[in-house]
Simulated assay, not measured.
Amino acid sequence: MYGRLILLIILVAFLVAGVIGYQMTRWADSPVATDPRQAQPKIVTIPEGATFQQIAAQLERERLIKSRSRFVLLGRSHSADRRIISGEYELNPGMKPQEILDKLVAGQVVLHPITVPEGYSIAQIADVLDIDKLVDAREFRRLCTDREFIRSLEIDAASLEGYLFPDTYHVARGTKAKDLIHVMVSKLWQVFTPAWRLRAADMRMTMHQVLTLASVIEKETSVGEERELISAVFHNRLRRKIPLQSDPTVIYGLEQFDGNLRKRDLSDHSPYNTYRVRGLPPGPIASPGAQSIRAALYPANAAYLYFVSRNDGTHYFSSTLDEHNHAVEKFQKRPFRRMAGARL
């Protein structure tokens, strides 16, 4: 008799559990909104350290689930209540509670694009981060000159200038600065292929020197087909021990620059003043793109030693000083005199 009673209790318990499980399954598959027009997406931020009960209450307030208590039960039944990852999520009332739970556990947070243009310096990249507020810009700046952190990236340099590859990165809000830097440096290692490293060794150039030269090329022109020619000019000058005389390097070394490079700036004692200092500057002056890195490694087969702006985005290249002076007269001095005369 006693054994039959226990068996009956067990059967009832199984039946109740089955009914509850069936109801939970139906609820987990029942979204708040069944009309697609009502299922407008919204961004929900799950705070770091929030309890599962708090998260369920938040989802209920946002009208993404019907019942916080059932959502808590759903989470516990899947052992997911302690595995929620904080961050921004795009959710909508047309999602089933199970789908919402799966997304929170998987950490499928919203990713925002951060575009770093070719030729941007660390300071300019930090300004981009400061505008978007996705990554701590102040910490980013600090880490870029932190010697211990830089060594941990296996980089032998005083700063990460030139080592942060320009590209579009997709990051979650609140991404740590060190994590973004790791991704940017890793992208550089991918781009700087083993073949390019062998080429640098054949040219007796370190990776730091290649990136330095590539950054100067990057700042000198935005015209793709000119990069190899400008690289040829600089390689020829380096070989002959002629100062590079690159305005972008001078500008980089100035403490303040108002947009006008003056004659006195060319006498500045900065190590980046390539009018006074022979050879490459101490390090990169910006983040070069793949095209400029390749140009630094594979300069055009040309005897050019000079180039001057045509004032249309392109440059005129010369092999002799006499030819260069004529080009300066034609493209720089003569148009300037015309403009001055027109103003009078």
Rank of each mutant, 00 (worst) to 15 (best):
I84R: 09
G107P: 09
I85P: 02
L153C: 02
P113D: 09
K103C: 04
I131W: 11
R147F: 01
Q108R: 13
E139K: 13
V135T: 11
I131Q: 15
M95F: 06
S121N: 13
I125G: 00
R147K: 13
E99A: 07
T115C: 14
A126D: 01
V105C: 04
R82Y: 11
R142H: 09
L91F: 12
Q124M: 15
E148Y: 01
L111P: 02
H112G: 07
L134D: 12
E99F: 00
L143H: 03
K103E: 06
P117K: 07
S86R: 11
A137E: 13
V109S: 02
R142E: 08
E99H: 03
Y120N: 03
G94T: 04
F140D: 06
G107R: 11
D130C: 03
Y89E: 05
A123V: 09
F140C: 03
Q124K: 14
R76Y: 14
Y120K: 02
F149E: 00
K103L: 11
A126V: 03
A126G: 02
H78D: 11
R142M: 07
V109W: 00
Q108V: 10
K133T: 11
A126C: 03
R76H: 14
R151I: 00
I131V: 15
A123M: 08
P117V: 05
L91G: 10
R141W: 11
K103W: 01
A123L: 10
I150Q: 01
E118K: 14
L143F: 03
D127S: 15
G119V: 08
E139G: 04
R141D: 14
Q108H: 11
Y89K: 07
D130K: 13
V110F: 08
P93F: 07
V109A: 05
Y120A: 02
V105Y: 00
A126S: 03
I84H: 10
S86V: 08
K133A: 14
R147P: 05
I122C: 11
R147L: 04
M95D: 01
F149T: 00
R138N: 15
